[in-house]
Structure formats: structure tokens, C-alpha cells
Amino acid sequence: MSTAELAATGPQVGTERPMSTGAAVAGVVRAETAKLIRRPATWLLLAITLVLSLLFTYLVPYAGYAGDTGGFRADLGLAALLPDRLVGNSIGGLPVFLGAIMVILGVLTVGGEYGWGTWKTLLTQGPSRLAVYTGKLLTLAVATLATVLAVYAVGAVTSAVIAAAENQAIHWPGLGDLFTGIGAGWLVAGVWAAFGGLLAIALRGVALPVGLGLVWLLAVQNLLAVVAAPLIGWVADLQQGLPGPNAGSLVAALGANSETPGVQQVVSGGQAAAVLAGYLVGFVLLGGVYLRRRDIL
């Protein structure tokens, strides 16, 4: 069900008085929230996120530890899986793999109207383009935060079970470290979701933006970091200003394992957070400019 169809089920604004911006944004948020909850793809993306996080952060390393096979995280052993590593373990996948899922979520949330061809129907309900865009972004912000919190929750339960099974003392991160980690994860997830939203608006679709976003996260930025940067000096310098390496630097500063793809301390954590915040604002503003000035069809 599209935003236009959901909005049409609520109170209608006729010609008696114009809809206020706040009411328009609130209506879009309600409609987008209902749409995300009812859309099976939303729950599928969340399930994939949690399965990937659980499998490659805890279950595979623990199986290797229990079987004494070495490999990934063999140098850290059981210590890498305990509750005191919750922050780093929860956000380590966001620079690449979990970040790719956030791109898809951003494309679906912001660009769904292109896929359904319902922009005209939606805008005739009363809200302006920017009111619709703002409502979509607010909904997307809540969705990314909920995803990050879900990853933390699954990680907390799994790490506690592993600690109990191995008769290890359970020590949780401090509240300050936990809130910092959640905020950092939300920032990285928000950057990738906003990137997906920008691609959806710029390309006026869903399939191509998803494809290009995944190619960038899973292929291009890794090739730049692994292949080009060690050989070409200016590419190595360029890494310090790209969103992927800064995301990897931020989560590395908070304890993410450096063996995780995309996690590398290229710049300091503070600089990485500032660069990512700049990208977030830039993606959001550029998407708004495109949506406001270009033909929606």
C-alpha cells in the first residue's frame, strides 16, 4: 500500500483551509510508518540484518573457538564474544554489509512512490513535496534507530548466553559507552539510508538505485581500499574523505574488530563522526533540492 493510499484513508483536507506544514508532515509520518510496518520487505530486511549480525559476529567465531579451528578472530578467542565487547560487535557490520541493507531501506522508503507511480495522487492530498520528503526522512530515522537497537539487543542476548555457557563473568559496557555506540551506529546507518534515499530521488526509481548503492558499498569502496589505496597515494588520501572509510574508522575507534570487512582506522573517531555528519546533512539537503526542482515523473 502506497503513502497516497494510506493518506487517503485519513481525514481529508478540502478547500476550506490549507493544510499546515506540521499537520502535513505528521500525516506523512503516520502513513509511512504504517506502510513500513505492513510491508513484508521491511521485516525481511530486519531479519537479514539480525541473522547476518548474529551469524558472523557470534555464531561462526564461536564455532571456530569451540572447534579450535583458528581463522577469523582466532587471536582474540572467547574474549571477542563476551558482553563487554557488545558495542564494537554490534556496529562492526555497518560500514559494509549491514550498511548495504540500510541503503535498500532508504531507497524503499524514499523512492517507493516512483515504483508505484503514486506521486501525483499523494501530492493532490495536500502536502507539498518537501513536507512529504521530511515525513519520509523522519520515518526513516526511526526505522534505522530501531534496526540498530535490535542488533544491540540480539548481540546482548547472544553474548550473555555464550558467557554463561563458558562460565565467564558477565561485564557490560558502561552506559556512556553504550549510548555512544548506539549513537555512532545510528549515524552510520542514517548516512547509508540517506544515501539510498538520494539515489532513489536522483534516479527516480527503486531497482537501479538499489543496484548502484550495493555496487558502491560491496564492490567499489572495497576495491578502492584494498587494491587502489596501497598503490596510489592520492587514492589513499581520498579515503579520508569518503563515507565508507570514515564509517569504518568510527566503528573501529569504538572497538569493532579490524578483521571485519570495511573496518579500518583511517582517521580518528572524532574526525570520522564529523565527516559522516557532513555527509548525512549533504545527502538529505541534496535529495530535497532534487525532489523540489525536478520533474517527479
Rank of each mutant, 00 (worst) to 15 (best):
F56P: 12
E166N: 15
V191L: 03
W43R: 03
T42D: 06
G262I: 10
A143E: 04
G106I: 02
R17T: 09
E32Y: 08
L123Q: 09
G70S: 07
L276P: 00
D75N: 15
V29P: 00
L94M: 11
G71M: 03
P95R: 01
Y133H: 09
A74F: 03
A4K: 02
T9K: 14
A169F: 05
G112M: 12
T15S: 10
G93K: 00
V266A: 09
A225G: 13
I162M: 03
A160C: 15
G117A: 13
V25K: 02
A146D: 13
V60I: 12
A194G: 06
V161P: 04
L208N: 02
V148Q: 03
L280A: 14
T180R: 01
G64N: 15
L285C: 14
S258T: 15
S20A: 11
G248S: 09
W172L: 15
G248E: 02
V220P: 10
P11L: 10
V13G: 00
I104N: 00
L276K: 03
K136I: 06
A141K: 00
A143V: 08
G183I: 15
T147G: 12
L198T: 00
R38W: 07
A219S: 09
V161F: 14
R292H: 13
V235G: 04
L138V: 07
V235I: 15
W186A: 14
K120R: 12
F97L: 14
L44R: 06
G213V: 07
A207M: 13
E166V: 11
L199S: 04
A143Y: 08
A194Q: 06
A80R: 01
L238D: 10
N167K: 10
L82S: 04
G93Q: 02
L55P: 05
V28W: 04
I104G: 04
E16H: 04
A156N: 05
G99D: 14
L108I: 06
L76P: 01
V281K: 11
